[in-house]
Design a protein around this nucleic acid. Structure first.
Lengths: 146, 146
DNA sequence: AGTTGTTGTAACTATAATGATTACAACAAA
DNA sequence: TTTGTTGTAATCATTATAGTTACAACAACT
C-alpha cells in the first residue's frame, strides 16, 4: 500500500503558495495546478490550517503561508495531513496466539525494528525544508524557460 | 495507509519455521500461531516460495526454510511479499497541470526526496537478518519461562 | 488400489481508505 | 444586496486487504 497522495498534494499546494504568493490563491485556482477537485484542495488546506502552516482569508478567500519556508519541514507537512499514524507505518497482524511462544513474543520484537525503520524514513523528511523544495523547484523552472 | 500485515505475518511464519524446525509445519498449524486462516498462510508461503526462501513438501505437506537464517534479511522478506512497489512508497498525484510551472516540475523534485526517504526505511530492514529476529525471540521466550 | 491429509488456487465476501463530486449554508467585500 | 469563496456533509466508484468456502491435484501410507 502507498502513503496517500494527500501528502504530495499538500507539498504542491504549499510550494504554490510560496512561489505564487502575489496571486489570489483560491481552492479552485490551486485545484487547476494540482489537477483535482477544489474540495480535495480545501480538505488538505483545512489540515494545513490546523497545523498552523497556512491561513485562509475569510469571505474573499485565498490561502497564504503563515510561516517562513525555512521553518517548515516535509515532516511537518506529513504530520499535518495525517497520512501515517505515529509508529504505525507497518500493520501488525492482531492477536497472534499467546499460547505459542513465537506468537506471544513476535510482536514486541518486530515493533522495535519496524519503528526504527519508520523513524529512518521520517528522519529524511525532517531534514528537508519547504525552502529546499521551493529552491530546487525555482531552479528547474528557471532552466526550463527556453 | 499502512504497509500490509502480509509482511509481519511472513516474518512470523519464517521465525516459526526456524524455531520449530522439527515440527510438521502445515498451513493449519502455522495459522494457529498467527491466528488467521490457513489459506492466508498458504498465500504468503506461496510468495516466500517464489522468492526461494522456503519449500513445501509435496503431498504430505509442511514448509521448511531453504536458506540459512543469516542469509535472509527483513528486506528480502519485504520484497518477497510485495507490500511496497520499488520506489513507490509515496503516492504521487497523477497529472499535475503541465501549464503551471509548479505543476510541471513538482513531481521530479519530490521523487528524488521521497525515494531517498523510502530507501532509508528499507535500509534498516536490510540490516536486520531473520537470524537477529529469531535470536531476540529465543531470548525473550527463554526469559519468559518462569 | 484406496484412504488420508495437505496444498494451491479460484471465487466470493466484508471492510476500510482513497479521491472525486455535488450541494449548500455561512460569510466578507464590493 | 450581490458576488465569490469557504467549510463541511453526503454520496459514489475504485481499490486493497484479509477472511472464508470449495475443490482438484497429489504424495504417503496401509
Amino acid at each position: 500500500m502507498k502513503i496517500s497522495s494527500r501528502f504530495t498534494v499538500a507539498v504542491h499546494i504549499l510550494a504554490l503558495l510560496s512561489i505564487e504568493n502575489e496571486a489570489h490563491c483560491t481552492s479552485e485556482w490551486i485545484a487547476g495546478s494540482v489537477n483535482t477537485n477544489p474540495v480535495v484542495v480545501r480538505r488538505v488546506i483545512g489540515q494545513l490550517k490546523k497545523a498552523g502552516l497556512v491561513q485562509v482569508r475569510p469571505g474573499t478567500g485565498g490561502a497564504f503561508l503563515t510561516k517562513d519556508i525555512k521553518e517548515i519541514t516535509l515532516l511537518d507537512i506529513y504530520h499535518a495531513v495525517d497520512v501515517v499514524e505515529e509508529g504505525e507505518l507497518f500493520q501488525m497482524h492482531e492477536h497472534p496466539n499467546p499460547q505459542c511462544p513465537v506468537g506471544a513474543n513476535i510482536q514486541a520484537v518486530l515493533e522495535v525494528i519496524l519503528r526504527r525503520a519508520q523513524a529512518a524514513m521520517e528522519h529524511v523528511l525532517k531534514e528537508v525544508r519547504l525552502y529546499d523544495v521551493v529552491h530546487i523547484l525555482a531552479e528547474k523552472i528557471e532552466s526550463s524557460r527556453s
